[in-house]
Design a protein around this nucleic acid. Structure first.
Lengths: 251, 251
DNA sequence: CGGTTACTTGATCGAGCTCAATTAGTGTGG
DNA sequence: CCACACTAATTGAGCTCGATCAAGTAACCG
């Protein structure tokens, strides 16, 4: 927490995949020291970005994959009529910009939700590196396949689940992802607004708000604005048991 | 139709990507003659498969990508409570099995809807071929990226669109895909049941049925069981985009 | 044929949306 | 420091779309 107010430390900027605590859940997963070094050499690291700043917008020439080092991103697209559709959120160790791979432009937008450090990996360099590093190639395929699986999991959520199940599933997903990152599974801050949550889950924001109130009354959790404290993870799980296996498997 | 009863013709089995009319909308897109030959060498072609047969099921060891040569596939997953969730349909030139790439097993199932010829491309051979053929690598990435984009388009459909808009969008998608394949954009047979359509679109089958009836009354199309004749493509299109009223009104 | 499955049509009900009002944060400027 | 504006979130009331339940019809198949 005091980190926030410290002046910029050059050592922190000079970070590499090799000493990044997230490397195991990020693109470098399963790569050895030498491979990591080569990946490192193509990663561009910027200064922290501020809420509201965009990594890219739909139609922008697609040139790079992005990894979240700290902070959070929101991925969304704009429908023909100007409505926003939230597609997902990227937490540390997760990627954005996959939909531009192999094409000319991004189909979605990616915007910073809270102050974030981002690693940028240019497609062309990534691709040529894949030729040399089969494990990177496999890892990249795996990342894309998991993204497809995750999107399909969302299809199930939106197609089959009630509002209650959707919100429970969403909170469990966040909980699991924070725990994986060594953070608390039961106490965290939501990086996104109610608007974003509702949009993502296909619900009106009033419904989201009411559900939070209802969950609180049922002693499942405590929520104050963006602060969430989960009191009964098991019961939340039992609300979405049919989706739990996939989420837990992580694959 | 008489084809069904003819003995197996060796020439029909010996088909290759090089003389496949679908190659432009399939994995080979953008590859030259020599590259095609090398891709051909790793493609396994089976005898036609019958409705109900599975290419793979969730949890099966993932070993290959599949391309539809003729016929149609349904992709779905099963939730723990035994519910089926339809994830999509593959028409000729389209792929199945992408969610197993880079992992150990498929997350979804793929089942044949109507008698189909399938091309099988083993992952390991595909991957080693990617090292030699950058254009295949790029194409594979592109295919995966498009799949992600398509899934995200479905998220929008399920999250934001009314039943009417969903069915219109579904029919338009089929229409476009058939036209791209050199078939009629206005007259085709649905390869899937009402059950499948409803499941896919997040609607009850009764709703799907009623909408078909309603569309017919509005002279948008004629439908008889699985035969569809689209009468007013433009108006169907305007239904998908005509959410402008809602957007203008508020939000 | 009779039985089975796929689809259609009708009637009713409720989950979640919309509209509207209120409350709680969050600056911003005097 | 407070008044004011502005946005985010909550809460309430009523309504609508689409689900569910139920019955009927049409194709298919031994």
């Amino acid at each position: 927490m005091s980190k926030k107010n410290r002046p910029l430390n050059i050592e922190e900027l000079k970070t590499s995949c090799q000493n990044c605590s997230l490397s195991d859940m990020c693109l470098p997963h399963g790569m050895d020291r030498e491979e990591l070094e080569r990946l490192d050499s193509i990663v561009v690291r910027h200064r922290p970005m501020q809420p509201g700043q965009h990594l890219f917008r739909p139609g922008d020439a697609s040139h790079a994959l992005f990894a979240v080092r700290s902070g959070a991103l929101k991925s969304y697209c704009i429908t023909e009529d100007g409505e926003e559709q939230v597609l997902g959120f990227a937490l540390p160790g997760e990627l954005a910009g996959m939909d531009g791979l192999g094409g000319n432009s991004y189909a979605s937008a990616s915007v910073v939700l809270e102050t974030s450090s981002i690693c940028e990996m240019p497609y062309d360099r990534l691709q040529s590196l894949c030729v040399d590093l089969p494990s990177l190639h496999r890892q990249l395929m795996g990342v894309l396949a998991r993204e497809i699986t995750a999107d399909q999991h969302m299809l199930m959520l939106l197609g089959k689940r009630s509002a209650e199940e959707r919100l429970a599933s969403f909170l469990l997903s966040l909980s699991t992802r924070y725990r994986t990152r060594g953070l608390s599974a039961t106490e965290f801050n939501l990086p996104m607004s109610r608007q974003d949550i509702g949009n993502y889950l296909g619900l009106a924001i009033e419904t989201v708000s009411r559900l939070f109130a209802q969950f609180q009354e049922r002693k499942l959790l405590k929520v104050n604005r963006r602060q969430v404290l989960i009191l009964d993870l098991d019961q939340l799980r039992s609300m979405v048991e049919s989706c739990a296996s996939r989420a837990a498997a992580g694959r």
